[in-house]
Design a protein around this nucleic acid. Structure first.
Lengths: 220, 220
DNA sequence: GTAAAAATTTACTGCACGGTAAACAGCTGT
DNA sequence: ACAGCTGTTTACCGTGCAGTAAATTTTTAC
């Protein structure tokens, strides 16, 4: 929600009273409009016009705030990544089992409320993800993002091992596998329309990955 | 390699002597040119011109053989799916363990020779896959294709269980999981540039999925 | 060998898109 | 209250693209 594109930074200030919009808000408005336009048209067919149609302001405003389509989409990608990370909120004080499960569920199913918004966001996210193969800028940002998600899983696994509630395993390998499987579960739902792919995925994670974390004769 | 788009089917015949090209060959030439163009430019930036530049013939020939860009890409998608399936060739007479491993390796790493071609093909395949979320025609074709790949894995697992070399498991779940993990392993390499993702994936499949197929006190 | 059909090329067109220019509004400070 | 800045709008290009039309060459059929 902080830093956006390069442009000129120290723009207008927020007028506290009434309902004033200023530079920063406008950018947020544009980001959200881009979101909806992208969800409707898809990356390939996205026109600047479509983004304009999704907001109150006219499409030319975009050119004032961003330096062309490329710049806009680069900023948007960062916006999406930040939003994704921000949406994964778990109780860090919980035991590793609970935290691990919570993280998996959040990534797979999204926040309990707003499940629809989750899949709309993910649709856009996954499309940008695929596009990274043709755009180094996208790749860099998404690579870093993907690693953070993975790392948060690895950390929980390592915590669990230290606390003795998980078996000794290769945390990197497990974390990567879980992250990957979550990713592909969502993708199968989004691209192929398999509505229950996330649920199947959840079950597979339970039976084939989490089970192997159980200490012999331990809980569950 | 057989049937193409709807158009008019029974075109010109092949002249045996010399090196003559006729209708069917031209379509193949166009398909291959589309392949290269797509690999270079990416789906979003693909122009008809690019396809024309990738072959001896001029780009207008495409309009003679296909009914516009959409028709071309629909035909191409089928072409790619068929090529993928045709490329997975394993010795069906081998024992389930060997066949399963062979299928996994083929999907992950491609034919031993032509490893470069494999990743070029997969790059295109995965991009089309992502695009399916915005195109029902693509989704239908790829859904069917994905299911066939999965089914071939499920079949091997079931064979193995009948022969008693695999433990009794939910073959559907295992087959789906293996297929999914292969998919995401490739994707991570292609989109994020993780060159050793396929190898990591292979190891994860071994340790977390195949291990669970081993009958207690069995081989390996 | 010649006429008809198929395949390919050369030359062109319409238009949708991203981007720009200049006019206009609204707030800020003095 | 008026100058000056930020932000927004209306109106307008220039380009690059998919697609077409007609001319030309090659292949097939008799």
């Amino acid at each position: 929600m902080s830093e956006f594109s390069g442009d000129d930074a120290g723009g207008g200030e927020v007028d506290v009273a009434d309902e004033k919009v200023s530079a920063k808000d406008t950018r947020e408005v544009i980001m959200e409009a881009t979101f909806r336009a992208l969800a409707k048209r898809g990356y390939t067919d996205l026109r600047m016009r479509d983004i304009g149609d999704e907001m109150e302001l006219t499409r030319q405003v975009i050119h004032y705030h961003f330096d062309g389509k490329n710049d806009l989409l680069a900023s948007f990608l960062r916006y999406v990544a930040e939003q994704y990370e921000g949406s994964v909120e778990v109780d860090e004080s919980a035991d590793p089992w609970t935290e691990l499960q919570a993280r998996i569920d959040q990534c797979l199913f999204g926040p309990e409320f707003d499940e629809f918004g989750h899949w709309e966001r993910m649709k856009v996210y996954h499309e940008l993800f695929a596009h990274a193969q043709n755009d180094d800028r996208h790749r860099e940002i998404l690579d870093e993002h993907y690693d953070q998600i993975k790392q948060s899983i690895v950390d929980v696994v390592e915590d669990g091992m230290e606390e003795g509630v998980f078996r000794e395993v290769d945390a990197e390998l497990v974390g990567q596998l879980i992250t990957d499987v979550i990713h592909v579960g969502r993708e199968r739902r989004i691209s192929l329309g398999h509505d229950d792919a996330p649920k199947e995925t959840r079950r597979a994670i339970d039976e084939y990955i989490l089970d192997s974390l159980v200490v012999d004769g331990g809980p569950e």
